[in-house]
């Protein structure tokens, strides 16, 4: 059974289909990439999965249970966490509290504050933000804000993590660090579904890639298959 699957997932904005009858599945332990030109509907698809938007049609299942149209906090508590394309930290709260909130509220059962604080401290260590734990999140650099979002999402103890352009705006060194971080998260047993524009990263790290164009899935396969697919090349060159 796939950890996440979608059947005929569709979203209309007005009369326009941003996502149109997309079928997809993500298997336990995989890193799956989601690529496509700007406006292909990638972030919309993530919003449909995480509950930020409700699909116009179609079914989404997580660990075999239907989650279509559930509220984001319910989906999070089931074990599905995400980061955002445009960083959405809690700007005036200290870095530590950002992560603590995830640890306190993101799990199905209640946890003690002391236990959550321990987890948050460990996660800040994991993403390399221990030194700035008391700094307000808005004062961090972009790359550190992205790390913070990642730590906050991990604090909810997810089975599946959606990463929306984690590497956008980072320099080559930072991209390398981010890739290593993603690999280490996977090694902890967390499945990853990621949108990415940095092709080098996505080709080397993903087990499988799904390509969207104008809201429609046009290709799917290993990085090798996608990179040599005629339709995909046409779409990217045609831009």
């Amino acid at each position: 059974m796939p950890i996440l699957e979608g059947e005929g997932v569709t979203k209309y904005f007005g009369g326009l289909a941003a996502v149109s009858r997309v079928d997809f599945h993500v298997e336990q332990g995989e890193i799956v990439g989601l690529i496509g030109p700007n406006g292909a509907g990638k972030t919309t698809l993530f919003n449909l999965i995480s509950g930020a938007l409700t699909p116009s049609a179609g079914v989404i299942r997580f660990q075999g249970r239907e989650i279509t149209g559930l509220k984001p906090h319910r989906i999070c508590k089931m074990g599905l966490a995400r980061t955002f394309q445009s960083v959405k930290v809690f700007p005036n709260m200290p870095v530590f509290e950002n992560v603590l909130l995830g640890a306190l509220f993101g799990k199905p059962d209640g946890v003690s504050v002391a236990h959550a604080a321990e987890e948050a401290t460990a996660l800040l260590e994991f993403v390399g933000l221990s030194a700035v734990r008391s700094t307000p999140a808005k004062d961090l650099t972009l790359v550190n804000q992205k790390r913070l979002e990642l730590a906050r999402a991990l604090a909810t103890r997810p089975q599946l993590l959606l990463l929306d352009e984690l590497m956008a705006g980072l320099n080559p060194t930072e991209v390398g660090q981010a890739m290593e971080l993603v690999a280490r998260i996977r090694d902890q047993g967390i499945t990853i579904f990621m949108i990415e524009h940095v092709m080098k990263a996505i080709m080397s790290i993903c087990d499988r890639i799904i390509v969207l164009h104008h809201g429609v899935k046009i290709a799917e396969g290993t990085p090798q298959e996608v990179a040599t697919s005629k339709t995909v090349i046409e779409v990217y060159l045609g831009e």
Binding site: K88, F90, T156
Partner: peptide
Amino acid sequence: SRFGMALQSIGECEEAAAHIGVNVN
């Protein structure tokens, strides 16, 4: 309490708060 912190997070970014498990409504 933790709810005080969660209320603060709603003021800072409601969408993100919902996505880390806060039942904002």
